[in-house]
């Protein structure tokens, strides 16, 4: 008992410190959502007026909805494509520098180059632009990040167990779902979280590929456009709500899960 406690203690201290660092500015951000003044960098008294302003601000709420839609689609598509790409690259017998470079490229192409390139490309094709073109664009870099995380896990994966499973008569699908997938799952989850997080925060590529209308404005676009006249704490209020709701939803679902498992 004592042994497990002392072996867990350093881990807990590490987690406490790291999460403290991660949540320190978040605490400030939440605090600022109750800041009476509209200035982002100085405090002038407690108020909930920004929450009221947020509820009345249909532009911000719609932008938040759009961001969520884009991030979900980009995450699903890029997680599937990125995982397959990682499997393809790691099961190849011969390393291909071209393929490696292609998988690295989305991470190193400057955002503005990709943004200008995609808008030029979509306009020349005469494609109508909107949320779908943002999704197409976000999948490009998301898939590279997913692929990279999944490949890291596959590096020491013993592919002979895959062959063993097939020698025992299992089909390709069964082998994948029963053998490969469970091993990959943590990295797929990690990759998907990464893709979602990147997509939620991406501004310049979304701005260029969104088309001209109001219907495809995402939250970062909305927030950056407020820069000239000051970003009001409405945005902090929104971030507070988004994080609060996500955390609550996760904890509730976990709790329900545990209730089911412990009859």
């Amino acid at each position: 008992m004592n042994a497990t406690f002392s072996s867990k203690l350093p881990g807990r201290i590490v987690l406490l410190l790291v999460f403290g660092f991660l949540y320190l500015p978040i605490a400030v951000l939440v605090l600022l959502s109750f800041n009476d003044s509209g200035l982002p960098t100085s405090w002038s008294g407690f108020s909930v007026r920004w929450y009221g302003a947020l509820l009345a601000n249909t532009d911000i709420l719609r932008a938040a909805g759009n961001t969520f839609i884009v991030a979900i689609f980009a995450t699903v598509i890029s997680t599937v494509l990125g995982t397959l790409l990682a499997l393809g690259m790691e099961t190849r017998r011969r390393k291909s520098n071209g393929l490696e470079a292609l998988a690295f490229a989305p991470m190193v192409i400057p955002d503005i180059v990709l943004a200008v390139a995609l808008l030029t490309f979509f306009s020349r094709l005469g494609l109508a632009m909107g949320l779908h073109t943002i999704v197409i664009s976000h999948v490009i870099f998301d898939l590279a990040f997913v692929c990279s995380v999944v490949r890291a896990r596959l590096k020491h994966f013993d592919f002979s167990i895959v062959e063993a499973s097939r020698d025992l008569g299992a089909s390709g699908w069964t082998t994948f779902w029963r053998v490969t997938f469970p091993v990959l799952l943590p990295s797929i989850v990690a990759g998907a979280l990464l893709a979602f997080t990147l997509s939620v925060d991406e501004f310049i590529i979304a701005f260029f590929t969104a088309g001209a209308g109001r219907s495809s404005i995402t939250l970062p676009m909305q927030i950056y456009s407020m820069i000239r006249f000051g970003i009001t704490p409405e945005v902090n209020a929104l971030a507070t709500i988004v994080m609060g709701v996500s955390a609550t939803a996760l904890l509730i679902s976990q709790w329900l899960n545990r209730q089911q498992q412990v009859p």
Binding site: P25, P40, V200, P220
Partner: peptide
């Protein structure tokens, strides 16, 4: 859950997180 809470702060917005650092 721990992984989720590690990324959750980053579902806010880059700009306002950076402003929060400025305030600090």
């Amino acid at each position: 859950i721990l992984l989720f809470f590690a990324v959750l702060p980053f579902w806010s917005n880059y700009l306002i997180r950076t402003y929060a650092w400025i305030v600090l």
